[in-house]
Amino acid sequence: MATSSPSAIRTLLLVTAVAIGAAAVITVAYEFSRERIATNERARVLANLRGVTATLTDSERLTPTQLRLSVIGEPADPNSVFAMRDENDAVHALIYSVSAPDGYNGAINLLVGVSLSGTVTGVRVVSHRETPGLGDAIETGKSNWLEQFTGKGLKDPQHWAVEKDNGPFDSLTGATVTPRAVVAAINRALTFHAQHSEKLLTDAEHGGDETDD
């Protein structure tokens, strides 16, 4: 380290040089990673969307297109909606990205796949902050709790609630708030589907698509 008292110019030059070097390091890393990170993100979104429709036959050949929610006019409950289409552009299912704000530790973000006949094709948790070991059994990798919703519809069962609230859905041992929030969020997605899915799909047919795959 320098022992003589350095001039202001020398300090300035040093700091500038180090700052330029630091910017160069970050630029190189950014340029290397940008495409890869974007590809990873897209692959993750696609895997999540396909996972939600995995119970459909040939779900592997379905590709997602994002639908325009603004056509509904009122503030929509889902954050986004995707149509899963086959190669002939026929829609097989709609996927709603919904948020359960009433989780035990904040919002639980879910993807709910709904077939055109209005039954659940699959549910996946995208992100959550539930307690490890208790509420986190809503993750697909940790338990098969979410599978019980597959095939259910808005009218089947009549009472959308967990067993603790006299409904048909299995509760999670030790967690009450989490399953309640998830059940309610899936129900909201189904309700939204029943009310608005036709309008969304009509809009998409008239070129209102925002391609995003």
Binding site: M1, A2, P6, R10, T11, L14, V15, V18, A19, G21, A22, A23, V25, I26, V28, A29, Y30, F32, S33, I37
Partner: peptide, 23 residues
Amino acid sequence: LVPSVRIPLFVLIIASFVTAVDL
């Protein structure tokens, strides 16, 4: 290195490498 600005420079260097590693 200049003693009076060494710590900010250390942090700048560390932070840029961490950002690169993160990416």
